[in-house]
Design a protein around this nucleic acid. Structure first.
Length: 605
DNA sequence: GCAAGGTC
């Protein structure tokens, strides 16, 4: 029988994909050492019975570093690190992955074909290539493209796995080349700037750091734009000056129904000039006192309002939502989502797509949820009005994965941890909401005049809650106004007040952000922040644009052109390295500027 | 002693 080697990105994916393709009782497990399992099962494939050998790697199996001669920090000029002709780099299997490499080779020897089931993102494409290179060393038949296939799937479910197996594709080499280029840029830029900055600071200043940690000022093309963003924010906060403002507030009551007090806000919103506001207050007050403290409804506007159902869920939106609703960090969110994905509960959680492909069977996916006590009833109603189902189409499509959606019902006993529970519920509610209808209602605006000044109050009545019924994360608060209100009606005035306020809430938020996240306090000092600030300031002062928030995204845009086949990899590599060289030279010729900026924050050694 | 991105 033909033996086919199948490799997934992690052990749990190998296990779940095996069970998705074959019945559990037909899968044999073989242990290799203590750390790796191989799943074996027979399958009909391409009109014959084959033996599937399913195992995995654990992320990247190869690492990238400079050639030994250039790993020493004093081995070469830092600028040379940005020049591929001067400092060669190489890819190799690190010590802790040698075990996997050997296992891969042993299995590859006995197989005639290789199916690559790595995650379907760009890193997965590159890892697939790393696996292929290793297998080819011991098995010549795997150098023939017809014996090497890429399985593409968006969820670890029987349906997706079988579909992938029936539609095997080839490796996408432009994407592999894009990732290799990114790796090289990151390594070269990281090493060059980290060495430069660390040496400069060590030689010049005494920087207090907690513990025995050595001072390393690392630069990374991802770290710095992030730091830049944080520093930008801090600087805006520091520059913020709260201002006092003044406004009028009118409280009235209907003559008949009486009890309810209506608080109306001023159409001028607020004024920063206290005297001006006081003057208008006096005018209104004398008008009221001449009119028996009565005011008149001058207009009532009624408009239909709707709240749109949400867009299909992509990764960024999932992170945002989980942060808002549960205060989960994006890290915690993705960890839970990855786990749900690898156990087959949700589709692949790394997607930029927010529009459903036309091929997706929404009815089937929704039906999976009909027995859940939390939203089963809602699902029943959706199925009765199935013709109304038309999810909105977002503008993003990564052409690889659909929006995140549930792929199997929640387990009866619940999930093993609260993060998984929470994320599954979020994903499912969001999915149902997308496939549901907009919420519809009426807004009523009642305008009341006091002399020439107008005041208003808003009312809202929800006529059809639509998606809101299953999606508690959006709020649309209903507010009923007395039914008897009509144009021309006189109201009793309870009070007219002049009030003051301040827009300092932002400053308070910022203090919190400082206290909680942006500053690490060691003893009485805020070292990391000072260091971060100094770095960003220094870069800006030297006109080395390394900490601009857009740096990374611009680079990623260029890299993407490689995978789209629109630009040569070496072209992008050299352009990026040239830009980094230029910035490094700016810094190294302006050490006096660096020294000056740093000296504000640190003592000289 | 350096990066970022996979996974454990």
């Amino acid at each position: 029988m033909k033996r086919i080697l199948n490799i997934a990105e992690k052990p749990s994916a190998a296990r779940e994909l095996s069970y998705a393709l074959a019945a559990r009782k037909n899968v044999k497990i073989r242990e290799i050492g203590r750390r790796l399992r191989v799943y074996e099962f027979e399958l009909d494939w391409d009109h014959e019975k084959v033996l599937m050998i399913f195992s995995s790697v654990a992320g990247h199996i190869k690492a990238l570093d400079f050639h030994e001669n250039y790993r020493n920090w004093n081995s070469c000029d830092q600028l040379a690190l940005l020049d591929p002709t001067k400092t060669p780099i190489k890819e190799f299997v690190p010590e802790d992955k040698k075990f996997l490499e050997q296992a891969l080779k042993n299995e590859a020897k006995n197989c005639c074909k290789l199916f690559l089931w790595l995650d379907c993102d760009s890193e997965g494409e590159k890892i697939a290539y790393e696996v292929l290179e290793i297998c080819q060393q011991v098995n010549l038949s795997m150098r023939a493209p017809e014996n090497v296939k890429r399985a593409r799937f968006s969820a670890i479910t029987p349906r997706d796995a079988r579909n992938a197996l029936q539609n095997l594709t080839q490796l996408h080499y432009p994407t592999i080349s894009m990732v290799s280029t990114r790796q090289e840029i990151d390594l070269r830029a990281g090493a060059a700037f980290t060495r430069f900055l660390t040496k400069f600071v060590q030689d010049t200043f005494k920087i207090p750091l907690h513990g025995d940690k050595k001072v390393i000022l690392s630069y990374g093309p991802c770290q710095f734009p992030t730091l830049g963003l944080v520093v930008d924010r801090l600087l805006t906060i520091r520059a913020f000056q709260p201002r006092l403002f003044y406004y009028l507030e009118l409280k009235v009551r209907c003559k008949r129904s009486g009890a309810e007090e209506l608080v109306l806000s001023w159409d001028r919103k607020h004024l920063f000039d206290r005297y001006c506001c006081a003057l208008l207050y006096e005018i209104c007050y004398s008008y009221l006192s001449q009119n028996h403290f009565e005011s008149v409804v001058s207009d009532i506007k009624k408009t239909a309002k709707s709240r749109r159902r949400p867009l299909p869920l992509d990764t960024v939106e999932l992170q945002r939502l989980a942060s808002r609703v549960f205060r989960f960090s994006s890290d915690a969110t993705m960890k839970a989502a990855e786990r749900l994905y690898s156990e087959g509960y949700i589709s692949y959680p790394r997607t930029e797509t927010n529009t459903f492909p036309s091929t997706i069977d929404l009815f089937k996916l929704i039906s999976l949820q009909q027995d859940d006590p939390r939203w089963g009833g809602f699902v029943q109603k959706m199925k009765e009005h199935w013709n109304d189902c038309s999810p909105r189409k977002g503008s993003k499509d990564d052409k690889a994965h659909p929006p995140i959606h549930p792929t199997k019902p929640a387990p009866k006993q619940g999930f093993p941890n609260k993060e998984c529970e929470a994320i599954y519920e979020l994903v499912t509610r969001r999915f149902l909401a997308c496939c549901s209808t907009d919420a519809k209602g009426y807004e009523t605006i009642v305008i009341v005049k006091v002399g020439f000044e107008s005041f208003r109050i808003h009312g809202l009545s929800i006529e059809d809650a639509g998606y809101l019924e299953v999606y508690p994360y959006d709020h649309w608060s209903e507010r009923t106004l007395p039914a008897e209100l009509e144009i021309g009606m006189a109201l009793d005035v309870i009070s007219l007040m002049m009030k003051e306020g301040t827009d300092a809430t932002m400053a308070e938020h910022i203090r919190k952000i400082q206290d909680r996240e942006y500053v690490v306090k060691q003893g009485n000092c805020f070292y990391p922040m000072a260091l971060g600030l100094a770095l960003v300031e220094a870069f800006e002062a030297c006109e080395a644009f390394l900490a601009r928030p857009t740096c990374r995204s611009e680079q990623e845009r260029d890299l993407r052109q490689i995978s789209e086949g629109n630009r040569d990899a070496s072209d992008v590599l050299y352009a990026a390295l040239a830009a980094f060289s230029c910035n490094l030279q700016k810094l190294s010729t302006a050490t006096n500027v660096l020294r000056q900026v740093f000296s504000v924050h640190f003592d000289c050694s």
